[in-house]
Amino acid sequence: MGDLIAEQLVSRETMTALQEFEALVRKWTKSINLVAPSTINDIWDRHIVDSAQIFKYAPDSFRTWTDIGSGGGFPGIVVAIMAREHHPTSRFTFIESDRRKATFLRTAIRTFDLRAAVLDQRIEQAVPQQADVVSARALTSLSMMFEMLQRHLSPQGIAVLHKGRRHDNEVAEARKLWRFELEEHASLTDPEARILAIQGIQSATD
């Protein structure tokens, strides 16, 4: 599925960096569980391509991007590598409470010379980021995530989230507690998954 990344109009330099990031993940996964063992042989499609596809849903004007629960750098490091080419002045923040994974993220930032920083704290305790974009992948249910999103998004910001086959149920549950604008996009890597672009998050009781 490398052509799916090529469709994002990335340069050969960016493609090479993404391939080098794949190799870095493979190396570190020998000692840290960065990705599920069942997906280690399919990192490119299951993780890198899956992460890269969200980049086009960020507004062209974004300057700050916060990735919450960054784990092994999916999607955070992937989109930060892509941003070097398309948004070279934008800054990224990765929030990851696991110290070993935070160390990996800092290593990736140095390796690929990214404009990024890591907060090794819990998402709900980190300083509010007021980010233009907040991303998350395989974190928690949508309704539980909204307080985190509201904490770290700017009022005009957009959340771009990976959601699996239960996305319809999660949206329905979230609407009981929250008001929000939603756009759903088909996933390029899983026909049952969706990319959710969410704005205007407010508590239903406000």
Rank of each mutant, 00 (worst) to 15 (best):
F146C: 13
A136N: 06
G76F: 01
L177Y: 14
E173S: 10
A52M: 07
G71E: 08
Q125W: 00
E147M: 06
F180L: 08
M145Q: 10
S70F: 02
D98K: 02
A36V: 05
R99F: 13
I198W: 05
A138M: 08
Q150D: 09
E170H: 04
F21I: 03
K30E: 15
E96S: 03
A186K: 12
S187E: 09
R26E: 05
G200E: 07
A102P: 04
I5L: 12
R46Q: 13
M148F: 14
D190G: 09
P128F: 06
V49H: 01
G2V: 11
D190L: 04
H86M: 13
N33M: 10
A83V: 03
F104N: 01
R122K: 14
V171A: 05
K101W: 06
N169W: 06
R165L: 09
A136F: 02
L105M: 07
I40Y: 00
R12L: 05
I195D: 02
L24S: 15
A36Q: 09
H167G: 03
G73R: 00
R99S: 15
A36S: 15
A23W: 04
T29R: 07
L18M: 07
G69V: 01
H167N: 10
G71S: 12
A6Y: 06
L18F: 05
H152P: 02
W178M: 03
G76P: 02
V10D: 00
H47G: 03
D50R: 05
N169Q: 14
K101V: 02
N41R: 08
S141H: 10
L177K: 13
L161V: 14
K30Y: 10
A17W: 03
H162Y: 14
A131M: 10
H47V: 01
T140A: 15
S187T: 06
T89P: 01
T39M: 09
A174K: 02
A58C: 13
F74M: 14
T103R: 12
F180H: 10
V118F: 07
F104Y: 12
A83E: 03
G76D: 02
Q125S: 13
I54E: 08
I109C: 01
E147S: 13
K56N: 04
I54C: 11
I32D: 03
Q53Y: 07
M148Y: 14
V160T: 08
S187V: 06
E13Y: 09
D42G: 04
D45R: 14
A117C: 13
A197W: 02
E85I: 04
Q130V: 10
A6H: 08
R84T: 13
I54S: 08
D60Q: 12
A17R: 07
M82G: 04
S51P: 03
A23D: 11
R137F: 05
Q121R: 07
S31G: 09
V25E: 00
L119T: 00
V127I: 10
V78W: 02
D120A: 15
A197C: 15
D120L: 00
R165Y: 11
T66E: 01
